[in-house]
Write a protein that binds this DNA or RNA. Structure first.
Lengths: 167, 167
DNA sequence: TAAAACCAGTTGTAGATACAACGAATTGCT
DNA sequence: AGCAATTCGTTGTATCTACAACTGGTTTTA
């Protein structure tokens, strides 16, 4: 790489120069963060698929409903909770409804609105998925971190999220 | 939530019971990790789109080429470097090639193989994209973390990745 | 050296997502 | 009350991705 810098003049510096000094460690950490996320997600999704339980996108929807009052949420609330656009949510919810894991019912208080409601079957799926998911999290994520690292990571990323919600 | 547990018996415990004790903090941290990733990526992609520079998927490909010897990689090496399936890479590379930012040339040493090679125009795009990307990383990620947190996060996630490569 | 096994990259197909435009319903303003 | 602006959810369209089957090239092995 250094030989290349000699041969090609400034080219190598495209990335390096800008990321030198104080910023560099943060950029390296960002890349680690991205890769770690991609690898962990890939492995966990594979575990879920092999066990024939819910994929993460379905699990997220149903868990959000589970955690909501009366196990129901308006579509736009659900979209906000799982960070999907409303357009995407319409189709995602339609697929999950077709599988019988949630139902849609009109909101009596607002003629425009719908509630997505967790069904008994949906709860059952959540129940059977969780152990597999928990196993994946432990195996591909938690197992490799010390207690202290977990705390630092959680605290730091929460601070980041709080800032994102304001900005 | 606790009232709900009283009313509905064991249901609330579906998730909580299993994740109690030692594991719980790790599961909470995992969720934070997922959300933080989703939010940061979303904001950075938006920055890139607004500045009309390369999206992350293209940037990743071109950066991998940039960092490779002679700025070229075999397709399967590239697929491994950016964590995409070969099928997906074929199309991604085709799009980038159509934009003139890389070229494909046969490998003289292996009739099956192709090299993806960074072009001058590709290097130029990398150059113009990086400041925007770096700004996004700083704004939506690095800015919110202390030096020590950055180090802990990088070290911990690297350890996780090392384990993933072996397992 | 011939056949079998393997590997590289592509392509058909299906699935999933975002963006923008839309119709229906509600809210706010005057 | 009545009209404009906003909000809600859906849908058309374009992109993008994964999986699996496939073609052609290479390596292994008998």
């Amino acid at each position: 790489m250094d030989e290349k810098a000699d041969k090609e003049g400034g080219e190598l510096k495209v990335v390096m120069v800008v990321s030198e000094g104080l910023e560099q460690k943060r950029n390296v950490a960002w890349r680690t963060f991205l890769t770690a996320h991609a690898v962990a997600i890939e492995k966990i999704e594979r575990d879920l698929a092999e066990a024939e339980v819910l994929p993460l996108s379905w699990y997220d929807v149903l868990l959000a409903l589970y955690e909501a009052p009366d196990h129901k949420l308006r579509m736009h609330e659900l979209a906000g909770a799982i960070l999907v656009t409303r357009g995407g949510l319409t189709r995602l919810v339609a697929r999950i409804e077709k599988a019988g894991l949630l139902s849609r019912e009109p909101d009596p208080a607002d003629g425009r609105g719908l509630h997505a409601v967790l069904t008994g079957e949906g709860l059952e799926s959540l129940r059977s998925t969780w152990p597999v998911y928990a196993g994946g999290i432990a195996e591909h994520f938690g197992r490799h971190l010390t207690d202290e690292e977990v705390e630092v990571l959680d605290r730091a990323l929460r601070r980041m999220l709080a800032a994102a919600r304001e900005g």
